[in-house]
């Protein structure tokens, strides 16, 4: 499982998150709108995943485990929250 809901308030993204993970992520976010997304173990994410994070203005926890995501994507996701 690369996307899972833990204890009802944290959505964990783990490893390489592919397009197939987009739907579960969206459903988790709809079910728990105030959940935090912990992507510290995320090593890569499909465009669809990042798109959901941006559209949902989800609160993310920590920095992902990929230089590209850390440097270039994480600031955009954080900015979307504002």
């Amino acid at each position: 499982m690369t996307v899972r809901l833990v204890d009802g308030v944290t959505i964990v993204l783990e490893g390489q998150c592919e397009i197939d993970d987009a739907d579960p992520l969206l459903r988790h976010l709809l079910a728990a709108p105030h959940a935090t997304v912990d992507w510290r173990l995320c090593q890569g994410a499909h465009t669809a995943i990042i798109q959901i994070l941006l559209a949902s203005k989800a609160v993310v926890h920590g920095l992902p485990d990929s230089i590209f995501l850390q440097r270039n994507v994480a600031p955009l996701v954080k900015k979307a929250q504002d």
């Binding site: 397009i19 987009a22 739907d23 992520l25 969206l26 976010l29 709809l30 709108p33 465009t47 669809a48 990042i50 798109q51 959901i52 941006l54 559209a55 949902s56 270039n72 994507v73 955009l76």
Partner: peptide
Amino acid sequence: VALDLLPVAPWPELDALDPFACHL
């Protein structure tokens, strides 16, 4: 050196979002 991801249109409500279409 820099990356911007912009929605093609303002984001819809989350429940109206099609996760399998690219809006960026």
